[in-house]
Simulated assay, not measured.
Amino acid sequence: MTRRPVVLVTGVGRRVGIGAGVAARLARDGWDVATTHWTPYDERMPWGPHPEDPDHVHAGLRAAGARTAAVPADLTDPAAPARLFDAVEEALGPVTALVACHCESVDSSILDTSVESFDRHMALNARATWLLVAEFSRRLRVEPGTGRIVAITSDHTVHNLPYGASKAAMDRIVLAAARELQHQRLTANVVNPGPVDTGWMDDDLRASVLAANPRGRLGTPQDTADLVAFLLSDRGGWVNGQLLFSDGGWRA
């Protein structure tokens, strides 16, 4: 029996999130799937905690034939990535692909962002991604050319200063990996899905985004998952070092 490759998808705390959509698609595509979640983040957000969601997500992954591991991880802790990879390797084996869907996202502007909030965004969105990429590279034991890194980004900056700034830093870290880690022949790409309503939009914002999209609908986690699945596939192996927009033309 051929062993399924292992993907680590971070930020899979809610069933409606992009991370959950990515994880589900990859399980259907033949991956074993490890995920991270951190309930204290959801407790601070408008949608509140959904502590049962990781179990529901993983039940669906197992139904698709995947072996799974759900690991709680506070990625603001610099030691968390090493512990995370230890746990995933023990449960599922070596990791072939890393998909970074985690984020800190709390709206604030130039004049009212606190230093604490700015530092937290940088720690989670930029520093944690750097440490995850580095840990992934150090432990990569797969055939050269099969390793994959994908990170989910955003260009939302106005009245969202720390989020936008930290995501921009994250982009540069991931894109640098395409060159700095070229000895491993892996690919490293960033995907910008545009506005995807995963519980953070109110009715007015939802209506304005819908009206502005040339495709006449909102983006879904499945839209993002389709592109991530391609980038992780053999067919996607020639796409490397790119920031890709998958937003139905919204940015245009």
Rank of each mutant, 00 (worst) to 15 (best):
V228T: 10
H183I: 00
T129Q: 12
P94F: 07
H58M: 10
M1L: 11
T198Q: 06
V99S: 08
W130D: 06
D74L: 07
T35E: 03
L8A: 11
A177Y: 03
D204Y: 10
V33K: 12
L26T: 05
P214E: 09
I149N: 01
G194Y: 05
P54N: 07
R235K: 12
V209Y: 11
D202G: 05
P40L: 10
V57C: 05
R148K: 14
G13H: 03
D223M: 10
H56R: 15
L231H: 04
R25S: 06
S117L: 15
G48L: 02
W47F: 01
L131W: 07
H56S: 06
T68H: 06
G60Y: 06
A100T: 12
R251W: 00
A23K: 06
S154F: 05
L244W: 05
G216N: 11
R120S: 10
P72V: 08
A64W: 04
A24I: 02
R3W: 03
A169N: 07
P40C: 13
P94Q: 15
N189L: 01
D247F: 00
T129C: 11
G248K: 11
G216H: 12
L243H: 08
F136Y: 13
G241M: 01
H37K: 06
E116I: 00
G145F: 03
D171T: 10
H183M: 01
A151C: 08
A79W: 06
V196S: 05
G241K: 02
S154D: 09
D119P: 03
W250V: 09
L61F: 01
D55E: 15
A20R: 02
T153N: 06
D155M: 10
T129A: 07
E104I: 09
D86E: 13
A151E: 05
R25A: 14
E89T: 11
V196L: 07
R217L: 03
A252F: 05
P46S: 08
R67V: 09
